[in-house]
């Protein structure tokens, strides 16, 4: 295991190691993708604890099906496809796909701070900017889920259009049209602040 983590292996190499019986090597995959998947799922289901549970389930599913992964494809695409199916399944079962955002609350009922990662913004980052981000995030979260998913994949997870098409199972043209529409919807909703 140590050797796996010392060298930088490609996803495919790590998976081969796992399939060869080194279960611990799967930790490398979790490490690599936990943040991306958790963010994707969080913006889809809009509930932090739930998104972590779903993320764990996605990794377990991926592990269980690892031998069916075809290394001719990109592993990240395969993994996000599992996440997409699993999350959308879950949302369907919940039957409240367009409910207002649910933010976990402390016992005291105070406002709950999401554990946002700071990625090097200056401490002087303006309030206006934070406010703008908040507004945009809300607007994204209000998009219909089929549009929301594409915005998240593109702008939060930085997936290519082709990957997005494979992940969602939509034709490439549909992906392009929808993300264009989605951005227009965001612009409409943010008219007063843009």
């Amino acid at each position: 295991m140590a050797s796996v983590q010392q060298k930088i292996l490609t996803d495919t190499e790590v998976i081969r190691t796992v399939l060869d019986g080194d279960q611990e090597a799967f930790a490398v995959i979790v490490e690599r993708y936990q943040k991306g998947l958790a963010n994707y799922i969080f913006h889809m289901v809009r509930h932090y604890e739930e998104s972590l549970e779903l993320t764990q389930e996605v990794f377990l599913k991926a592990y269980a099906n690892l031998s069916s992964f075809d290394s001719a494809y990109k592993f990240s695409t395969w993994l996000y496809k599992i996440a997409s199916n699993h999350t959308i399944d879950h949302m369907r079962k919940q039957r409240a796909p367009e409910s207002p955002i649910e933010v976990p609350d402390d016992e005291g009922g105070g406002t709950y701070e999401l554990p946002l990662e700071s990625h090097g913004q200056s401490p002087h980052e303006s309030l206006a900017m934070k406010d703008m981000m908040g507004r945009i995030r809300e607007a994204v979260e209000e998009l219909p889920s089929s549009y929301r998913e594409l915005v998240i994949l593109r702008h939060f997870n930085f997936r290519s259009y082709e990957e997005m098409a494979k992940i969602t199972g939509l034709p490439l043209g549909t992906v392009k049209n929808r993300i264009f529409r989605a951005r227009q919807m965001l612009m409409e909703r943010l008219k007063d602040v843009r």
């Binding site: 936990q34 963010n39 999401l114 990625h119 981000m133 939060f156 930085f158």
Partner: peptide
Amino acid sequence: LVDTLESIPPIGVP
């Protein structure tokens, strides 16, 4: 819009 969207900090994982 796109710049701001892409600069939204990601959520952290425990």
